[in-house]
């Protein structure tokens, strides 16, 4: 093998890597928060008493869950603006629309998985809990908020954390619509220096650090959520 490693290029182009990292964090963090909110709402809607609400929620989930993420990104980025009035188009293009489109794409795509996790979590709570809460005179909303969700969260966290990790990794697809996030910058370094191995190794390590950090933080959250609910001692 004739390839000579030159790790110094990474130092030379550290600004690009750093910018990419910051943007990846921003993109992931915003999408994580939004997809959690949207996903929880749709997850709860799927269990609604009203058939219409259930239908809306399940169509949403089925549709976006079964379409490739990259197509969704292209749709939001290339197709949607064409349906919008001209002034809105120019406003979007002036305001970083590629970033907005990737937040929309990642949020919607991930929210479908979160909705499924939330629905399964709520369904796994014993129905006696709901009954006991209602019998105590709690309203439907209070029952959900004080009794069902706090218990479901413990069950929901592990699959949702997986989705957070997937989302962070999926955010690299945003490069296809010209968001200069981490993968985009790694590629830029490669084309400037022909040092692809070094650039992508660096990007890989950074992604690993990111996902490990998320796992660690969420592990703490999970332990907090499990208060009083660790499995019973035999």
């Amino acid at each position: 093998m004739d390839y000579e490693f030159n790790w110094l290029v990474l130092w030379e182009y550290r600004d690009l890597l750093l910018e990419g990292l910051v943007l990846t964090i921003k993109l992931s963090a915003i999408s994580i928060v939004l997809s959690t909110i949207v996903g929880t709402i749709f997850g709860i809607m799927r269990l609604s008493k009203s058939l219409i609400i259930r239908l809306i929620a399940s169509s949403y989930v089925e549709f976006f869950l079964n379409t490739p993420l990259i197509i969704q990104l292209f749709f939001w980025y290339f197709a949607l603006p064409m349906a919008l009035p001209g002034w809105l188009q120019s406003w979007l293009w002036a305001h970083n629309y590629e970033f907005i489109a990737s937040v929309i794409g990642l949020t919607i795509y991930t929210s479908t998985f979160i909705a499924e996790a939330v629905r399964a979590g709520i369904q796994s709570i014993d129905k006696g809990q709901r009954e006991a809460a209602l019998a105590s005179g709690l309203t439907g909303f209070q029952t959900l908020w004080y009794v069902i969700l706090p218990q479901a969260i413990r069950i929901v966290i592990p699959p949702v954390v997986n989705q957070f990790l997937n989302l962070t990794k999926n955010s690299s697809l945003a490069m296809t619509i010209a968001v200069p996030e981490l993968t985009y910058q790694a590629q830029a370094i490669e084309s400037l220096t022909f040092r692809g191995f070094e650039a992508f190794t660096a990007a890989t390590l950074i992604y690993i650090c990111l996902t490990l950090t998320i796992s660690l933080v969420m592990g703490k959250v999970e332990r907090w959520a499990a208060k009083g609910q660790r499995p019973m001692a035999a």
């Binding site: 006696g128 809990q129 009954e131 006991a132 809460a133 019998a135 105590s136 218990q151 208060k227």
Partner: peptide
């Protein structure tokens, strides 16, 4: 709220 109910499965809230 004016009817106390002890449900069959006890139904305490574990959290």
């Amino acid at each position: 709220r004016n009817i106390g109910y002890v449900i069959q499965e006890i139904g305490l809230f574990p959290h």
